[in-house]
């Protein structure tokens, strides 16, 4: 039988999947709002825009609620901090070999987390001034549209990359779904973390 260790608490998984759902809603409606052919096919622009805008406004809510959980706060701190090992891991060519002992998150996951969080806040801010057209002058709305477009494109690619890595590694996906991962996977992918939590 595979020995398993706890990786993500119920609160963390709830935050992850709530954000995933809202992000999917934002991306699908964004495609309709941005692509002319889809826009003409679907129509109902006001409804599509309402779903987009309110999914966007709701996006940070699960993350803020997550702050009530100690496990979530601890993992946010882990994601925030870059150690010498993280820099070495990013620079190395054999980063998957296990030579550099990775903590609970590797440097790529940390970068993904901070870039996603930053991009989400930028989209939230620019989206707000685009939606409430009376807030700032026209030239700033034009700037906000430009920033919103580019940031959305970058975040979309980031989300696709995140999905590609997750779907390639069933155990990582299982960790986010069930909360538990196989010890041998933890030893291989996150050796320094495995030492902290290893049973026995």
């Amino acid at each position: 039988m595979t020995v398993r260790v706890a990786r993500f608490s119920a609160a963390e998984r709830a935050v992850h999947w709530a954000v995933a759902l809202l992000m999917t809603a934002c991306i699908l409606t964004a495609l309709v709002l941005y692509n002319g052919s889809l826009a003409m096919l679907v129509g109902h622009r006001h409804t599509v825009a309402l779903v987009h805008v309110w999914s966007g406004f709701a996006l940070p809510v699960p993350m803020l609620l997550g702050a009530l959980s100690a496990a979530y706060r601890l993992d946010v701190r882990r994601l925030n901090r870059f150690t010498d090992a993280d820099w070495a891991w990013l620079r190395s060519k054999d980063r998957r070999s296990g030579r550099i002992r990775v903590g609970k998150f590797n440097a790529g996951q940390k970068l993904n987390a901070s870039l996603s969080a930053g991009a989400t806040l930028v989209l939230l801010g620019t989206g707000t001034v685009m939606w409430f057209t009376g807030l700032v002058r026209l030239s700033w709305r034009t700037g906000a549209t430009l920033v919103h477009d580019w940031t959305a494109l970058a975040l979309g690619l980031l989300v696709l990359g995140h999905l590609a890595y997750a779907l390639r590694d069933g155990e990582a996906l299982r960790g986010m779904w069930s909360g538990r991962v196989a010890v041998h996977w933890a030893n291989r992918e996150h050796a320094a973390w495995a030492d902290e939590v290893e049973p026995g």
């Binding site: 706890a6 882990r78 870059f82 903590g103 998150f105 902290e196």
Partner: peptide
């Protein structure tokens, strides 16, 4: 297995690059 970890994890000593 399953018990919450008790870290003084080295991972928490790095610089706050994420922020």
């Amino acid at each position: 297995p399953g018990r919450p970890e008790r870290p003084r994890s080295a991972e928490l000593d790095g610089t706050p690059v994420g922020r």
